[in-house]
């Protein structure tokens, strides 16, 4: 289950975005590149709409831009580490360094959603988020996330 939702290739450090809007555009582009979505524009608009309802900026430099949209082909998790800190109207006012982006197709099945909710819950765990923030090793990030999800699943 996890494997087709999240892979090492869903992690990128290559964003030089400086604003929230640029970051969302980048995520849209990255999602299309990874063949997670059909249209990067539609996904970007979906993310933008969700941000308008309420910011997804969390705390300690983390954001979770996400949306449910029919342009999404496969339910997926992407991790984007930004080179520049980005103002995201986060809860503690701190700029965002890392985005967990969740892409959900319309009418998605329960198991996929369950995985996504597990990731959301994992973000409350300070040890988990600081471990991810403090590494520049994609493999380590991948393993941390996978571990968390497998652990929660059992």
């Amino acid at each position: 289950m996890m494997d087709n939702m999240f892979s090492l290739d869903n992690i990128t450090f290559n964003s030089d975005a400086t604003t929230k809007d640029e970051a969302l555009k980048f995520i849209g582009h990255f999602a299309q590149e990874r063949e997670i979505v059909k249209s990067e524009k539609a996904f970007y608009k979906g993310l933008k709409k969700r941000e308008k309802e309420v910011t997804t900026g969390f705390k300690d430099g983390i954001a979770i831009p996400h949306c449910k949209n029919k342009t999404v082909l496969n339910p997926s998790v992407m991790v984007v580490k930004f080179t520049n800190p980005i103002e995201w109207e986060s809860m503690d006012g701190k700029p965002v360094k890392l985005a967990f982006s969740l892409a959900i197709p319309e009418g998605e099945n329960q198991q996929h959603l369950k995985v996504l909710s597990t990731i959301s819950r994992a973000l409350i765990d300070d040890a988990f988020t600081s471990a991810i923030l403090n590494t520049n090793d994609k493999e380590e990030i991948y393993n941390l996330i996978k571990e968390k999800i497998v652990m929660e699943d059992n």
């Binding site: 997804t56 949306c67 449910k68 597990t118 959301s120 973000l123 409350i124």
Partner: peptide, 18 residues
């Protein structure tokens, strides 16, 4: 519960439980 029902719902629940 949140509008999308994807992230905030679960993060809020986790925060409160913790």
């Amino acid at each position: 519960a949140c509008s999308a029902g994807i992230a905030h719902t679960y993060m809020a629940a986790e925060s409160l439980e913790k």
